[in-house]
Nucleic acid binder design. Structure first.
Lengths: 208, 208
DNA sequence: TGTACATCAGTGAACGCGCGTTCACTGATGTAC
DNA sequence: TGTACATCAGTGAACGCGCGTTCACTGATGTAC
């Protein structure tokens, strides 16, 4: 690869990381172009070689989130075979919390700007979350078949689970590790509650 | 009452409303003291007669939210007698969506700053939401007794319900009224799912 | 009631500062011959 | 390979602007006698 474009790519990444880091404390909306440039160790004017303005940078951050979410899903699935539903749930939630800790800034952005940010920004984030819900919904259906069970409304169940896991999981960001264990338990309990509620108890269905 | 303090109170309310209105489009974090003052039609310097800084104003907004949430709860309870659980759920969620529409700006703030805002701000919001969860949890227990049912973990159920209703309900803010009906159905389905999962099917418990 | 003084919400000028953006530039890297 | 020119990521000065905050002030309202 070009030495020139290689260097450019590096600077771009520095900008993205700087924005990610700064946004985690004060929120993306409160960032200035100049402070991001400074944190990335370039002159403010060089910013424009990479992004038209802060909004465009923001959309790149959403892309980062998207890539990262897909990686999360892949990891969770990789180990999802030959397990009963209950330990799979537990395992997936642990994977998730781990991911949240490793990508704290990305995650804060994902949840923090879901409301309040610009329309474009908000829509882009919504799209990624919806995608995630669809994927989970398909996984739930597949699992149900494997376990000879039926789910009503796997779509609703998936949406409810994602909402719970993301929102409560976000609290992990403010907690010391030793308190995260209790959080995991809460999430696991609530997700199991949803799964139980989504299951068709065949006893009710078949007339005896 | 003092004519002077009466006037002062009016100006204070103007400041609060201005901040609420402005924050709904760009987020509270992005507001400047001067633009809030201008929207409230006072000189920037008069701001200091009411609040030490923007953070203090923010905490007053949280108070507004708190008052408003309590009013919501009271309304929902007022009509909660002599109804079966399913129509009560439906009714409560309708009350809630109505409330969200009427207090759109307060609600946007409540959800938007849950992440990302300053620590004080975030903690204050968390406290209000937790209070709400506790109240709902007690209501659920009371209802279960009335209906001769048992709930496991009414606390978890309440937390899951509040998370779902608030988060999905927030989407109502971006929707035209005719699309809100579908949203309500989604919320009702998901809440029922949680309630179903929380119910102890006595068949499982008693040994026949 | 009238008068003299105190209070205090709101004003307007002024300050230094960081902001986003423009512009002409530099100098290392890339390309054509 | 060497040379001459083109490209373009990053620079630094400069701009006008809105920011938060200070300060001495005004004038309506409140209070004491």
């Amino acid at each position: 690869m070009d030495k020139r474009s290689e260097q450019k790519a590096k600077t771009r990444i520095k900008l993205i990381n700087a924005a990610l880091e700064l946004s985690s404390t004060k929120g993306f909306a409160a960032l200035s172009l100049r402070e991001v440039a400074q944190a990335a160790e370039i002159a403010p004017t060089a910013f424009y070689r990479h992004f038209r303005d802060m909004e465009e940078l923001g959309l790149s951050l959403v892309d980062e989130i998207a890539v990262s979410l897909r990686r999360l899903l892949r990891n969770a699935r990789k180990n999802s075979e030959a397990k009963d539903l209950s330990s799979l749930t537990r395992f997936s939630i642990e994977t998730f919390i781990e991911y949240v800790n490793e990508n704290a800034n990305l995650f804060r952005l994902l949840l923090g700007e879901r409301q309040g940010a610009s329309d474009t920004f908000r829509a882009a984030l919504r799209k990624e979350i919806d995608l995630f819900v669809v994927e989970l919904s398909e996984d739930l259906d597949r699992l149900a078949v494997m376990q000879n069970q039926k789910l009503r409304h796997s779509g609703y169940a998936a949406e409810a689970i994602v909402t719970i896991v993301f929102t409560i999981g976000a609290e992990a960001l403010d907690l010391p590790p030793f308190k995260q264990e209790a959080l995991k338990i809460r999430i696991v309990e609530e997700v199991n509650m949803i799964l139980r509620g989504a299951r068709e108890t065949s006893r009710v269905k078949t007339k005896r």
